[in-house]
Design a protein around this nucleic acid. Sequence first.
DNA 1: ACACACATGTAATTGGTTACATGATTTC
DNA 2: GAAATCATGTAACCAATTACATGTGTGT
Lengths: 209, 209
Amino acid sequence: MQSQTGYVILGLLSIEGNQSGYDIRRTIQGSVGYFWGESYGQIYPALKKLAAEGLIEPANSPQRTGAKSPVRRGGRKTAGGRPDRRAYSLTPAGRARLQEWLAQPFRVDPPRDEFLLKLFFGREAAPGVSVEHVRDFQQRNRRLLRTFEEIGRIGRAKNANHPHFRFWILTLEYGVAQIRAGLRWSEGALKELESMEKPAGRGQRKARQ
Amino acid sequence: MQSQTGYVILGLLSIEGNQSGYDIRRTIQGSVGYFWGESYGQIYPALKKLAAEGLIEPANSPQRTGAKSPVRRGGRKTAGGRPDRRAYSLTPAGRARLQEWLAQPFRVDPPRDEFLLKLFFGREAAPGVSVEHVRDFQQRNRRLLRTFEEIGRIGRAKNANHPHFRFWILTLEYGVAQIRAGLRWSEGALKELESMEKPAGRGQRKARQ
DNA sequence: ACACACATGTAATTGGTTACATGATTTC
DNA sequence: GAAATCATGTAACCAATTACATGTGTGT
């Protein structure tokens, strides 16, 4: 079944090979991380398993930044000191497996959104609490929107002719659309929440910033 | 820390008491389930823990549908047969704890969206695959939109003067806004994906880098 | 007669995060 | 000289789903 993490790794290695667990983690953070996160605790075991199944293989070129010894010194861990970089690339079998997975219908796991949950129970909360949450929501989303726009700008400048580019842009645009819709919604929501707390008048001494 | 599940339960019991684990599960499915799911495996242990901490307590009225013996027969399990209904209500301490939690900033756990992930790697997929996924996405979202609209209609008719109503509607409207944005995005996405596969014409059954 | 809703709980398993161990090299 | 980055991996823990066990009452 391969635990999904495996497929993310296959996918990333299909775009660029010769990547280590560390690299993969970083690549994720700057790209798919916005809708799909992975941690070391998942990545390293997954790499091992993929290699054992012959879907990935150790890559040739070391490509250390500039260290003095690109030589593999021991086994997996140079006793003491920075461990050797262990990079991998996709095998043909790995690419085939990736394609198989891509062709299967995507599964949707139900989202868990604590913001909406708290808003849903907003009536129980002390006055001002829900307004505060919506403000927080706005702030996060505005920041995220700026980030996405920045990613788009850089991407268009650097990768515009990369063969994957249009797919990347599609996912980015999806994110942007979602955020914009959320922000538009939040305007109305804020107004409504404020109007719900005002008219009652005095009882709301805890409406802090 | 109370594991969040506990708070959902507190929240639901704050709206309506005298609910069993079974009831709570069903209530969730018709309401917060669209953005927050819980399974029996979480609910029953959580109920036990909440009761042990005095945040909820066994409710008085049995309210069995129409069974002949609303009497508690033994302990937790009537040896053989349908187990006794064990309903709970919120205690004042429970309500206080709920309010505390509501006032704290919501945490955002990163979403895991397999649809976007597959679209991101769409270049690697066989032709037609991504288009297919987007169509699937559209179908699901159209259905969901109808469901949400239905929920809104029923809600407005039945609960319009329920004190929690406006908060519920806010979360519902959020969902509707997200779905609409997704559907609008998908129109453009479909067109682009289709145009990507048409023009190249024949030679592209394995279009890899 | 059959299926489905009622009803509670536990156990097994998977999935995933966080913290730990370890220390050299690069950058400010 | 301090701080961040490079780099791999394991262990402990937490969260959550699924399957199992059990069988009656209700509606078609």
